Simulated assay, not measured.
Amino acid sequence: MTVAVLAAMLAVPPVAAEDRGAVTNLPLPRFVSMKASEGNVRRGPSLSHRIDWVYKRRNMPLQITAEHGHWRRVQDRDGAGGWVHYSLLSGVRTVIVEADMLNLYARPDASSQVNAQLSLGVVAEVRRCEAEWCELSAGGYRGWAGKGAYWGVKPQEAFE
């Protein structure tokens, strides 16, 4: 076996192009938040479909997994979801804290000063993310938290 054949066999397969929504051409899946303080979650993408439950938390992070017309199929941190009208959603990025007393640091460095601590279940706005840290804002406090202790961003996602 030649070196070239062996290298080809061991090569990591190319990463598939990111899926795009048929309606918006935005990446799927992607994170958004609830714009409304209340929103019906339906079994299908129309008003004629049954309401399975109602989201009652403004700014709650959700993940869009599909699009159909003015409807978006969403999923929450527990994996529950359904179809929501797009007007109930916002592009503002938020996360929900999954660890009690999450430290918000002055810089993306665990040895920097702690600005605040966030309790389990707090919803915080995401200001920006680097590979391993995101800058969060909640209750008038702002700081950096390492990824993994909150839901609403992808593990290596970075944005301004």
Rank of each mutant, 00 (worst) to 15 (best):
T94V: 07
L118P: 04
V3T: 15
P61D: 00
A110W: 02
A149H: 14
L47T: 02
K147S: 11
L104E: 14
L6T: 14
D100W: 03
N25Y: 09
R50H: 08
G39L: 00
E38F: 02
V41C: 00
R30N: 12
R73M: 08
M101C: 09
V74G: 09
A149M: 02
A145K: 13
L102D: 05
G146C: 01
R73S: 12
V153P: 06
T2K: 15
M60L: 08
V153G: 08
M101G: 02
L47K: 15
L104T: 03
G69E: 02
K154I: 00
G44H: 09
R93C: 06
G139C: 05
P108D: 12
H49Q: 13
P45Y: 03
N25A: 14
Q117W: 07
A149N: 14
V114S: 01
R57M: 11
N40Q: 11
H85V: 11
D52E: 11
L120G: 09
T65V: 05
V15D: 05
K147E: 03
L118F: 04
R107V: 12
E18H: 13
Y86P: 01
N59A: 04
N103K: 14
F31E: 04
L6W: 15
G139L: 15
V54K: 09
S87A: 09
G140P: 01
A145L: 07
M34N: 08
R57W: 02
G152P: 08
I51R: 05
D109Q: 07
L89V: 00
V23M: 11
E160D: 09
P61L: 10
L26H: 03
R142C: 01
E132T: 14
K154T: 06
A22W: 13
P27A: 09
R128S: 09
A17R: 11
L102A: 05
E18V: 12
A116M: 00
E98K: 07
L6R: 14
L26V: 05
A16Q: 05
Y55I: 08
G21L: 08
V114C: 00
E130M: 04
G91L: 06
E130R: 00
R42M: 06
W144V: 13
L47F: 10
A8K: 15
R57N: 08
G143E: 03
G148I: 06
W83M: 03
L26P: 03
D76A: 11
V32S: 03
F159V: 06
L102C: 06
V32Q: 06
F31A: 10
V126R: 01
P61H: 10
W83G: 04
V23E: 15
A106C: 02
Q63A: 05
Q117S: 09
G148K: 00
A11K: 15
S112Y: 01
T65K: 07
R107T: 08
G121A: 04
A138N: 14
A7Q: 14
R77F: 09
R30F: 12
D109G: 02
Q63L: 13
Q63T: 13
E135R: 15
R50P: 12
T65N: 13
G69D: 04
V122N: 01
A145E: 15
S112M: 03
M1E: 15
R77S: 06
A145M: 14
Q117M: 14
G82E: 05
V15W: 00
K56R: 08
A158N: 12
